[in-house]
């Protein structure tokens, strides 16, 4: 009886031991699987992170390339801008030079001022003493007097104006009755001719020219004054062309109005 009971207890113990062994086996495998899963998950996450980093590196590379391209563009633009500024500066100086040549700018410098006036006193005396031989045109300043005088001094003249009207290559000096027209503007005596140039040469040319001597002979009041700083205003009129045409296709003529000073 006791043996049977002992045997039964032994069998129960073995059963317990087997059950515990079974549970432990399952636990061991579960633990191993879980660890494998954890390792796989970690590797997967690591791979994801590596992929993400590689993607970011590629993006950074692309952005760096873009930055370099933009820098090159900026450099090219700066270079182009500098070139344009150089060209603009050149064009400005060219336009300035052409303005000076076209008498479109104010000028200053040393020169002489010649003043002419009608011989009113001589005319009055002649009219009174010899009315039969009196001729009024002998006592006034004519357009040709001004014209010849200016022409005689032209080789030493750099800028010239008569009564403030700038003379240009296209200027005309004409008479209309008793008045003189310069640049289509009417002038009345006295006539003040301002000339910038070599004073010595101008005076020499003036005093030796026939027109000057003729004026002095006719008793026309003519005098000149040297000035160290003479200001001559720019030509204010227009250059009109009606018939001429430029043969060079590269030149845009006449220039647009907004380009004219």
């Amino acid at each position: 009886m006791a043996d049977k009971k002992r045997k039964s207890i032994k069998q129960r113990n073995i059963l317990f031991l087997s059950l515990i062994s079974f549970i432990l086996g399952v636990m061991i495998m579960t633990s191993i699987h879980t660890n494998h899963s954890a390792i796989a998950a970690t590797e997967s996450k690591t791979r994801e992170v590596v992929d993400y980093i590689e993607t970011l590196e590629a993006e950074v590379g692309a952005l760096e390339a873009e930055i370099n391209a933009t820098r090159e563009q900026i450099k090219a633009l700066e270079s182009s801008q500098a070139q344009e500024e150089t060209q603009l500066s050149y064009l400005n100086s060219l336009a300035g030079g052409l303005s000076v040549r076209a008498r479109l700018t104010d000028m200053e410098g040393p020169g002489i001022v010649i003043t002419l006036d009608d011989n009113a006193v001589g005319a009055a005396l002649a009219q009174k003493n010899n009315p039969s031989t009196y001729r009024a045109e002998n006592y006034i300043v004519h357009d040709k007097d001004l014209l010849y005088l200016i022409r005689a001094l032209s080789h030493a003249t750099e800028a010239c104006s008569i009564n403030g009207l700038r003379l240009t290559d296209a200027s005309s000096i004409r008479c209309a009755g008793t008045i003189i027209l310069i640049n289509s503007a009417r002038l009345a005596p006295p006539y003040k001719i301002s000339i910038i140039g070599d004073q010595k040469e101008l005076v020499s040319a003036l005093t030796s020219c026939g027109t000057y001597l003729s004026l002095v002979y006719r008793g026309i009041p003519v005098e000149y004054v040297k000035q160290d700083k003479l200001i001559i205003k720019a030509y204010a009129g227009a250059y009109s062309t009606n018939y001429v045409q430029v043969t060079d296709d590269r030149i845009n003529f006449p220039p647009p109005d907004d380009l004219l000073p």
Binding site: I14, L15, L17, S18, L19, I20, S21, F22, I23, L24, G25, V26, M27, I28, M29, T30, S31, I32, H33, T34, N35, S37, A38, A41
Partner: peptide, 30 residues
């Protein structure tokens, strides 16, 4: 031999039916 058999069966069952527990509890299970 029954306990050894129980262990082997448990290992086999555990490897056939993979019981996965959350990774954060892996240490506790170990």
């Amino acid at each position: 031999w029954l306990p050894l058999l129980g262990l082997i069966v448990g290992l086999l069952l555990g490897s056939i039916f993979t019981f996965n527990i959350p990774i954060e509890y892996a240490n506790y299970l170990a």
